[in-house]
């Protein structure tokens, strides 16, 4: 028994645009952990392009920069670095 009142599922889809394409000044570099922080999850994983809306070119560049930043301990590999 469905009620006609029930609101239809709204599917909002804000248009996502690449942060790096829109703002040319926006620095993409492993030495800027602050900006890289927007593109990783709390656990340190890289956020996929489908969510951030980056273009393919910049997502590729971002990935290498994040990985560089990880190697010199600017960004964590994971949220819990435990030693077993």
């Amino acid at each position: 028994m469905r009620r006609p009142q029930q609101r239809r599922k709204k599917s909002f889809s804000r248009k996502k645009v690449c942060r790096f394409c829109t703002d040319k000044e926006y620095e993409l570099n492993y030495k800027t952990p602050r900006t890289l922080g927007y593109f990783i999850t709390e656990r340190g994983k890289i956020i996929p392009r489908r969510i951030t809306g980056n273009c393919a070119y910049h997502q590729r560049a971002l990935t290498t920069e994040i990985k560089r930043a990880r190697t010199i301990a600017f960004i964590p590999y994971t949220a819990t670095h435990t030693n077993y």
């Binding site: 030495k31 800027t32 952990p33 602050r34 890289l36 922080g37 927007y38 593109f39 999850t41 709390e42 340190g44 956020i47 969510i51 951030t52 600017f74 960004i75 964590p76 949220a79």
Partner: peptide
């Protein structure tokens, strides 16, 4: 650089 970013993201989107 500024200190490393806090893990809690500021934007709810992420």
């Amino acid at each position: 650089e500024e200190p490393a970013p806090s893990r809690a993201q500021e934007s709810p989107q992420y």
